[in-house]
Simulated scan of single mutants.
Amino acid sequence: MATQPDIPRHVAIIMDGNGRWAKQRGLPRLEGHRAGAESVREVMEASIELGVEYLTLYAFSSENWNRPAAEVTALMGLLDRFLKEKAKDLDRQNVRLLAIGQLDRLPAKTRALIEQIQERTTNHTALTLVLALSYGSREEIVSAAKSLASDAVAGIIDPTDITNELFASRLHTAGMPDPDLLIRTSGEMRVSNFLLWQISYAEMVIVKKFWPEFRQGDLFEAVQEYQRRHRRFGAL
């Protein structure tokens, strides 16, 4: 679907506040993560309606591996369940799935499920849903630098030939447009090691609601705020 000029091609979201949402209600943290899955459905449907081409969700950071083992295991179980339940929806809604991050750290069955769904949805065109899993932007940038350094040592490239475009081609997001709009829920004012290279010129919208409270109307409001901005990209 062709995107209108005033609709962001790529929306990236830091889905924050699941644990605090649950705590406010006297619920286990895991219930907050479960509730957040409904927000994912709503935002995906709203993105299709708007004509957004890429929706990237910060689902599990590389730092999240440091959480208690029981919580990590439960989160991986929720991820498996989400993927299985949403696979048919992705087909029905013509949505392509991609996953980025240090995917080799995920459980083998989770990786296999992701690979299966990615292959199954590869030709879907209504929206590309990108899940950032076991993802950390600093690690991504270091990996890209190592890749280029290795090629330079091998004589495959000359260091003077390294450009922004070449560097970007070694990132997990190679081939994707950079995010136009970055949304963070829960009111926090941080980017939390998320797409540091890619969001250089993204417009940021901070939403005070916790992620499980985020709905289609909230995405529409964030896009309206984006439309009111004048993107100068460093110019006057």
Results as ranks from 00 to 15, higher is better:
residue 54 Y to S: 11
residue 91 D to M: 14
residue 199 I to K: 07
residue 168 A to N: 10
residue 228 R to G: 15
residue 211 W to H: 06
residue 78 L to A: 01
residue 178 D to Y: 04
residue 124 H to I: 00
residue 87 A to F: 07
residue 90 L to Y: 03
residue 73 T to C: 00
residue 163 T to C: 00
residue 24 Q to H: 15
residue 230 H to V: 07
residue 211 W to C: 02
residue 182 L to K: 01
residue 213 E to T: 06
residue 33 H to R: 05
residue 103 L to H: 12
residue 69 A to V: 07
residue 87 A to P: 06
residue 236 L to V: 13
residue 97 L to V: 14
residue 171 L to I: 02
residue 138 R to N: 08
residue 69 A to L: 06
residue 67 R to A: 05
residue 67 R to L: 09
residue 219 L to A: 04
residue 210 F to W: 14
residue 179 P to V: 08
residue 72 V to Q: 12
residue 220 F to P: 07
residue 154 A to Q: 15
residue 127 L to D: 08
residue 35 A to M: 01
residue 196 L to C: 05
residue 168 A to P: 11
residue 43 V to I: 15
residue 231 R to S: 08
residue 115 E to F: 04
residue 67 R to T: 13
residue 46 A to C: 11
residue 5 P to V: 10
residue 212 P to D: 02
residue 180 D to H: 08
residue 140 E to Y: 07
residue 211 W to M: 08
residue 140 E to F: 13
residue 125 T to H: 15
residue 217 G to P: 01
residue 7 I to T: 13
residue 78 L to K: 01
residue 85 E to N: 11
residue 152 A to D: 13
residue 162 I to H: 09
residue 144 A to D: 06
residue 161 D to P: 04
residue 128 T to R: 00
residue 46 A to K: 13
residue 135 Y to C: 01
residue 53 E to S: 15
residue 46 A to R: 12
residue 170 R to A: 12
residue 235 A to Y: 15
residue 37 A to F: 02
residue 143 S to Q: 13
residue 75 L to T: 07
residue 28 P to V: 10
residue 83 L to H: 14
residue 85 E to F: 09
residue 209 K to W: 01
residue 204 M to P: 11
residue 192 S to V: 02
residue 88 K to R: 15
residue 131 L to S: 05
residue 233 F to I: 05
residue 153 V to L: 15
residue 20 R to N: 14
residue 115 E to G: 06
residue 34 R to D: 00
residue 231 R to K: 13
residue 208 K to N: 14
residue 230 H to W: 08
residue 220 F to N: 03
residue 94 N to I: 05
residue 46 A to L: 04
residue 79 L to S: 04
residue 141 I to P: 05
residue 236 L to D: 14
residue 221 E to Q: 12
residue 204 M to S: 12
residue 108 A to I: 13
residue 160 T to P: 00
residue 130 V to P: 01
residue 19 G to D: 13
residue 100 I to M: 06
residue 216 Q to L: 09
residue 153 V to F: 09
residue 226 Y to M: 03
residue 161 D to V: 07
residue 113 L to T: 11
residue 199 I to M: 05
residue 222 A to N: 11
residue 155 G to A: 04
residue 232 R to F: 13
residue 83 L to N: 13
residue 20 R to Y: 07
residue 74 A to E: 00
residue 64 N to G: 00
residue 89 D to T: 12
residue 42 E to I: 04
residue 11 V to F: 08
residue 183 I to S: 10
residue 185 T to I: 05
residue 26 G to E: 06
residue 193 N to F: 02
residue 181 L to N: 04
residue 206 I to K: 05
residue 65 W to P: 08
residue 206 I to S: 09
residue 80 D to S: 07
residue 105 R to M: 15
residue 76 M to C: 09
residue 156 I to T: 14
residue 27 L to Y: 07
residue 236 L to R: 10
residue 233 F to G: 00
residue 101 G to I: 04
residue 122 T to E: 14
residue 172 H to P: 02
residue 118 Q to G: 01
residue 151 D to A: 14
residue 203 E to N: 10
residue 106 L to R: 05
residue 61 S to W: 05
residue 212 P to N: 09
residue 114 I to M: 01
residue 163 T to N: 05
residue 101 G to F: 01
residue 119 E to T: 10
residue 87 A to I: 03
